[in-house]
């Protein structure tokens, strides 16, 4: 057990923060849902950030940290699948951006993706769509969303590949959600510190302080669950992290908007850029019940096994 970052990971974090500095503020004139910046994708690509999971001394933990940090930006970028799933599939050679298409539904970055991971029930395929195969759609989810509309050629994933994809998509969901929730909390803290009612800052009212503190505990826990899953690559750890992301995500998104009052309903305030991305993660991979099913299989001793005691 050692929760410190190694020197390479620290250097990476500094470099990432420097790169992200250009993208920390929502442009004042932007009043929409999906805020994206081509420059961000290009900057990340130029610095080889999409491949850090494969670098010795960085690895998937560093990739998960990067996904988490980048999710804190108001800009939506296709980082999670590229940084955490792509490196584990076919030697990391498939072209990015990546996107997930589940049961024919609209998905994040589907209109931009060069590789699609297609899940139909328990069947997994991949495809490389042309521009005629996908259609961009406007949604309330604060991602560029798209739909697979053409009959693109699909290749099946082997059962082992499907298991790998399932595992790392779950880690990706958890890492991204942790960053989104943290940024949404930070944004809400700023509002609660500035906004006064009844002659005092809202953040001094205990009814709000305690709910904020609970959100902070939940995201702190999610952060560790996500990093542990990235480090162990264990199916149970991955399912548990994704479960927690989806289980607390819904609650936290509601809580934070509630605390902003009417300001939280506007597109002027940036909160929705995090919370409505978070909402876009809640149904992935079948949603929390499906993650719970996986937790039930991987995290608890099987029917025949005798309970050993202890913390292991």
């Amino acid at each position: 057990m050692d929760f410190r970052l190694n020197d390479d990971q620290l250097t990476l974090a500094t470099a990432l923060d420097r790169l992200a500095d250009g993208y920390r503020e929502k442009p004042i004139e932007f009043h929409g849902f999906a805020l994206s910046a081509e420059g961000l994708d290009q900057d990340l690509s130029d610095a080889e950030f999409f491949d850090i999971a494969t670098f010795p001394d960085l690895g998937p933990v560093a990739a998960a940290l990067a996904v988490e940090r980048l999710a804190r930006l108001p800009y939506a970028a296709e980082t999670a699948l590229s940084m955490l799933v792509r490196p584990h599939l076919r030697g990391g050679t498939l072209p990015r951006p990546f996107a997930l298409v589940e049961n024919g539904q609209a998905g994040r970055f589907v209109a931009q993706a060069r590789t699609l991971l297609i899940r139909t029930g328990e069947t997994w395929e991949i495809a490389h769509p042309g521009s005629g195969d996908v259609t961009a759609v406007e949604t309330i989810f604060a991602y560029p969303m798209g739909r697979l509309t053409g009959s693109v050629g699909r290749l099946p994933l082997s059962p082992a590949e499907a298991a790998t994809v399932r595992r790392w998509v779950r880690v990706a969901i958890a890492a991204e959600a942790a960053g989104l929730i943290q940024a949404a909390i930070d944004s809400t803290v700023t509002h609660l510190s500035d906004r006064k009612q009844f002659g005092r800052p809202l953040g001094s009212f205990q009814a709000l302080r305690h709910r904020m503190a609970e959100c902070a505990v939940l995201v702190g826990g999610l952060h560790w669950l996500a990093l542990r899953a990235a480090a162990t690559a264990d199916d149970g750890d991955a399912a548990l992290a994704a479960f927690q992301a989806q289980d607390c995500g819904a609650r936290v998104a509601y809580e934070l908007h509630q605390m902003l009052g009417a300001m939280g309903m506007t597109l002027e305030h940036p909160l929705h850029l995090w919370t409505y991305r978070l909402k876009g993660l809640l149904s992935l991979m079948g949603g929390r019940e499906a993650q719970a099913g996986a937790v039930g299989i991987h995290c608890f001793p099987s029917e025949t096994q005798r309970n050993g005691h202890g913390a292991g």
């Binding site: 057990m1 505990v217 826990g221 560790w224 937790v295 995290c299 913390a311």
Partner: peptide, 29 residues
């Protein structure tokens, strides 16, 4: 009897236990 909504509740409790464990480990670290 591990059916219906039970696995979801179990997962919630499991996540709570592991979050508690990892947060504690963070302090020990």
């Amino acid at each position: 009897a591990f059916v219906g909504g039970v696995p979801t509740q179990a997962a919630r409790a499991k996540a709570a236990c592991d979050m508690s464990r990892l947060c504690a480990y963070g302090i020990i670290d």
